[in-house]
Design a protein around this nucleic acid. Structure first.
Length: 467
DNA sequence: TTTTGAGTTGTTCGA
DNA sequence: GTCGAACAACTCAAA
């Protein structure tokens, strides 16, 4: 075997197949070392029971096994990648470092620092497009500017797409991986300072194998995606978000699934994948959205920011059953159905008059599938501060939404069991019910609504009008 | 340069 | 209960 080697640095692409950077590394003709860095700068901000680290850990365990089966190894480091990656590259005598591009501000800064460190020594940091179909300046308007409206972006995306862009990127691992000096097991979660039991409550299957199981399952349901996706009590969505986030599923596989068998559902799901890329490119071109409203006129909105109301929202104790069910689902499982994310977000901003960034931060802390671009885009959309603000159109009525999307209260009953005995009508708004079950006292067994929707709606309109 | 058509996901009100 | 119109005005993107 040749002495020359390169380093493949895994980040949010935790799979050994259909991986652009890995593919390029394998084709370089040098032995490929693989590494993952537990980034202390990121881990420091996570609670000890963080579900994402458990998800990552499970994915890494599978990845390590896959690489070992092919005669290689997944190396790991625990520290600051800006130090660890150049040090490891030097130690292994690598002539280059391969990784897939990450469009978040922190990642851009980190990669720029790593690139500088490497340049001073040996090799180069080579970044590849892997997490999206189109990146950076690939899709611009006729004026050469980034798109800020979804529909024209989506049309352009579809016009520019061709199947080669979603073709699998794969070269055989066997024989191309560098032979490891030794096999070193991954650190346990406990050794990393995290709780071992943090996967409890996590219902989504983990790792590359979990991604494939979910994808296979969704294949059979995708035709019904459009009609079922809005009902949280129904199995209508893909449940692939966390896998797309951590790269246990590639976006190309997702797009291929959307195009495999044309249907209204598949078409609709492709639009969601395009939304994902829309927000990715928005973050790339406008990184300031992480700190402030996209729309300048909404940067100084005087939100009252009542801490007690915010706390009630976090705990799922607002007295609005579907909002509370949604928040309890999030707190319990690290997941929230897409329809509920809109309802919960609209409620926090338009009913409780709390700054959308508080909600964004809370979701960022709790969501297993948390993605900065998508979360920020979703919150700014719900708050009407984003790139297609329509405040007059976008104040959800939490009761109407509940009656529409959880008509029989199945979802509410699952997550707010104290309301289980209420009938299908009363369960959406217990305070309006003519008669409640015997022994049930509103305000004791379940909170009375903490705000009046009609009044808060008017207040929100005023708040947004005063700009 | 000017014009034109359009803009994820809703709600409310009145007939 | 159902249905259509109003909700405001503006900016974006393309012709």
């Amino acid at each position: 075997m040749s002495q020359a080697s390169v380093l493949m640095w895994f980040r949010r692409d935790l799979r050994a197949s259909d991986n652009a950077a890995l593919n390029a590394a394998l084709r370089s003709g040098s032995g490929v070392h693989c590494v993952f860095v537990f980034d202390r700068r990121t881990l420091a901000s996570l609670p000890p029971d963080d579900k994402r680290l458990a998800f990552i850990h499970a994915a890494l365990a599978e990845l390590q096994q896959t690489l070992r089966d092919a005669g290689g190894e997944l190396l790991w480091r625990d520290g600051d990648p800006v130090h660890e990656i150049p040090a490891l590259a030097r130690e292994l005598g690598c002539s280059g470092v391969y990784a897939n591009r990450d469009y978040e501000p922190y990642a851009r800064q980190r990669d720029a620092e790593v690139a500088t460190q490497l340049a001073a020594n040996l090799g180069q940091l080579q970044l590849y497009k892997d997490t999206v179909i189109f990146e950076q300046e690939q899709l611009l308007t006729g004026q050469g500017k980034p798109y800020t409206v979804y529909t024209p972006y989506m049309k352009r995306w579809r016009q520019s797409f061709h199947p080669a862009l979603a073709t699998e990127a794969s070269t055989a691992l066997r024989g191309a991986l560098a032979t490891p000096a030794a096999l070193r097991p991954l650190p346990t979660l406990a050794e990393l300072g995290f709780g071992e039991a943090s996967l409890a409550g996590l219902r989504v299957q983990t790792g590359r194998s979990g991604a494939l199981v979910l994808l296979d399952d969704f294949h059979r349901r995708i035709a019904h995606y459009k009609t079922l996706r809005d009902f949280p009590a129904v199995k209508g969505v893909s449940y692939l978000s966390a896998h797309l986030r951590f790269g246990t599923l590639s976006v190309r596989e997702a797009v291929r699934a959307a195009l495999a068998e044309p249907s209204e559902g598949a078409e609709c799901w492709l639009n969601e994948l395009i939304w994902r890329e829309f927000y990715q490119q928005l973050l790339w071109h406008f990184p300031a959205v992480t700190r402030e409203s996209f729309k300048p006129e909404y940067r100084e909105l005087p939100f009252p920011n009542d801490a007690a109301l915010f706390e009630a929202w976090c705990q799922g104790r607002t007295g609005y059953p579907l909002v509370d069910a949604a928040m309890r689902q999030l707190n319990h499982s690290g997941y929230m159905h897409n329809r509920l994310r809109m309802i919960a977000a609209s409620f926090l901003v338009k009913d409780l008059l709390v700054d959308w960034r508080w909600g964004e931060a809370y979701f960022a802390q709790k969501l297993l599938d948390f993605d900065l671009a998508a979360n920020n885009g979703g919150w700014q959309w719900a708050a009407s501060t984003g790139c297609d603000a329509q405040p007059y159109f976008r104040i959800f009525n939490p009761v109407t939404q509940s009656e529409k999307f959880d008509a029989k209260g199945q979802f509410i009953r699952r997550y707010v069991p104290e309301l289980a005995a209420l009938d299908d009508k009363a369960i959406h708004a217990p305070w309006l019910a003519k008669a409640l079950p015997a022994g049930f006292v509103l305000g004791r067994d379940y909170p009375a609504p903490i705000v009046d929707h009609a009044a808060q709606r008017a207040a929100a309109l005023q708040l947004f009008a005063r700009t």
